[in-house]
Structures are given as C-alpha cells and as structure tokens.
Simulated assay, not measured.
Amino acid sequence: MSLFHTPFIAAPMAGGTSSVALVKAVQDGGGLGFLAAGYKSVESMTAEIAAARGAGLRFGMNVFVPDPAQLPPGAGARARLEEYRAALEADAARYGVTMPPLRLDDDDAWQGKIDALLADPVEFVSFAFGLPGTAVVKALQKAGTTVISSITTVDEALAAAEEGPDAIAVQHHTAGGHTAAFLTSGGPRAESTTAGLLAQVRAAVGLPLIAAGAISDGAVLRDVLAAGADAAQVGTALVRTEESGARQVHKDALGDPGFTETAMTRAFTGRWARSLVNDFVRDHHDAPEGYPAIHHLTAPIRAAASAAADPHRVNLWAGAGWRSARTGSASSVVKEFLSGL
C-alpha cells in the first residue's frame, strides 16, 4: 500500500473549489481529498480543518509559499504593475467596479498558517509556488505530518529533495490552474507527457511521487502509475461535480463547446496558470509577472463577471484534458477512475 493508501488524490484547488464536501465525496469514492489554504485567512483555514475532522475525513492541506522577490517587487516590476492596472480600467468599467490600489505586501499569512499547522497538525501538508525550507519540513514531520513538495522540472525535484520531504508532486505543464514552478518562469512549454516527466524525476530522486497534469481518465491514471507514480493528483476532472465549490460560470464553461483551447496566462493573477482561452486571456496576453499583486487587481473584475454569468472576464482554470470533466457526484468520478485498476 502506498503512502496515501489510494492512487487517487484530489488536487488542492484554491479559491473555494476544494470544499469539505468535495473532500468527503472523494473519500467516499476511494480517494484522498485536499483542502487549499491559498487566499484564506488563518482562521478560515483552521475552521475548514475542524469541519473536515468533524466529518471523520482523511485529508491534506495545501499552502502557498510566498515569493520574496514580490514582497515587495522592485521599482521596474512595480512600474509594469502600474501600467497593467491602467490597462485593466476598461475591464473594470464594463461592470462599473473600481480598480483597487496596488497591494504589494501579501504573503498569504504564511507564518500564521505554518504556526497553526504545527500547533494542530494534519495528516498531509503540500506546498506550491516554492519550497518551504528545511526547518519547516522538519518541524511538520516532527509534528507527525507527511510533507509534500511540488515541482515542475528535474532541477526543482533535486532542490526539493534536499529539504527532505516525504513525497514530491510532479506537475506537468498540462495541469490546470497555477504552475508550481519556482526555478523557471513556468510559462508555455512543449516538453514530454506527464508520464514522461514523471519517469525523468523518478530517475533523479528516490522519493514517492505524485503525478499531476491532464490526468483526465482511468487510462491516464494507469499510465502514470506504470511510469512510477505512487498516486495521481486530479483537479479539472472534479471541477464540474456537485460537491465542487467552483463558480457556476466556471463549471458551465468547462462544458461549453464554444471554448476550444487552453493556454498558459498571467492575465488574472500575475503567475502563469492554465485557463480556457476567453476574451480576457486574449486581451491581456502580454500581462506582466506580479503574483499576488495582479490577483488583487483583477479580483473585483472577476467577481463582477461571475455575478453577471460572463465567462469572458473570469479565470476558467482548466487542464489540457478538460473536455472529459463531467457533472454528477465526485464520488462517482473517483470510482470511474479507479475502476480499471
């Protein structure tokens, strides 16, 4: 039996998609669910942990690692952010919302979340957007937590392994939502398949591996397991399910034949992420780097677009296998993935 007791892991999806209800449905189907601390306060994160425990669930928590280079960004980067803010005025005017001032100090309550996870440990903690540091890894392990670092290249895997995590999540560029890249730009690439990248990482490090990126059905799950994965992390395939907390406009877009491709974009948050290509992605194809400052700039536009059921000004995170995402219960989706094993 693997470290996770199942080959199916529900990817942590920040912004409300990874609900306690989704974690429960995934567990009912035979998988392991993750909650996402990203964009939440420490209090909201701990409340979700309490709710999941109260429901008797096994689960993990994902935490964003802040980028010191963005806290705050340098003068040149700040000037580019101000230019982008001005470029967003037309989008804001479409919905009658006001553009907020630049926010350059948001570290997503990093230390508070680490302190809370040490004070009241959960079974699994995964990290994205960077490495947490050896001291954090060791402290969490001492508290009884299994630690997972996320990477996108062999070089990142080697750097992660130096810190001594229990496992590594190997994210291919076909994955939906934000890239976990931290040693490269994380922009568009044309490298191997998810199984191919996983095999490269398997040859470089001796840790349990989780495959992520376009794990769209049971056949792909079997491929990555055959390539050496201990489990696969599945995100987009769960977004449309009943228990997903994703916005309805997002769920509907994934099933809309009017959307025909995905692309990596920085338009919504200032960090590369894979989304369905809509008007906002097209209009802001040259958006600068600047996470999470751009996330805060576009937040009122995205909220207004969602309220108006307008899919063309909201982030529609989607992996390359998005067409297979279906409605119904997440438990049924998990069972279908696992049925051929």
Rank of each mutant, 00 (worst) to 15 (best):
A237K: 00
G74V: 03
P208R: 14
D286R: 07
A157I: 11
H178F: 15
P66C: 10
P121F: 07
F182R: 09
G54F: 09
G206M: 10
R103M: 06
L88N: 01
A320E: 12
A307N: 09
A109H: 13
D279F: 02
R85M: 00
L71N: 06
G176K: 10
G15P: 03
Q233D: 03
L32M: 12
V63R: 01
F337I: 12
P132N: 07
L254R: 11
G228C: 07
E289D: 15
A55E: 15
A330L: 02
T174G: 15
A92S: 06
A50D: 15
A159H: 10
A37Y: 09
T6I: 01
V26S: 05
S185H: 09
Q141E: 03
R247N: 05
T134Y: 08
D310S: 08
S331H: 04
T262R: 13
K335S: 13
E191L: 10
L276I: 04
R189I: 03
T146F: 00
D286M: 06
E83R: 09
V97E: 05
D166N: 15
G177Y: 10
F4W: 04
T174V: 03
E243F: 11
L117E: 01
V201L: 02
L131W: 09
A75P: 13
L209I: 12
G177N: 11
E162A: 15
E336G: 07
T174W: 11
A195R: 04
P208Y: 13
A55H: 14
A180W: 13
A303Y: 02
Q233R: 00
G54I: 12
P300T: 10
K40S: 12
A47S: 15
M61W: 05
F182E: 12
V201I: 15
A167T: 13
S275I: 07
L316T: 03
K24V: 00
P292W: 10
V122T: 09
A320F: 01
R94H: 12
L118M: 09
E261C: 04
A51Q: 15
P300E: 08
S329N: 05
S149Q: 14
L238G: 07
K335A: 13
S41G: 14
E261W: 09
L183D: 10
P288S: 04
E83D: 14
Q233V: 01
G144C: 05
P101A: 14
Q111T: 08
G176L: 14
G319H: 03
D279M: 03
G228A: 04
G187N: 11
F268R: 08
D230H: 04
H172Y: 11
N62Q: 09
L276C: 08
H178K: 12
G33M: 08
D230I: 00
P12C: 01
Q248K: 06
V205K: 05
N315T: 10
P292V: 10
L341E: 15
P121C: 07
Q70T: 07
A305H: 08
P132W: 11
R323D: 00
D283N: 14
V65N: 04
K40F: 14
S19P: 06
A93N: 09
G112A: 04
Y95A: 07
L57W: 06
L225A: 00
E261F: 08
I294S: 02
H172K: 12
T269K: 02
V333A: 12
V220A: 09
H172N: 15
P257Y: 08
A227M: 02
V234M: 02
E156W: 11
F59G: 01
I151C: 04
P101S: 11
A181Y: 12
L118E: 07
D115M: 02
E242N: 11
L3S: 04
W322A: 00
R222H: 02
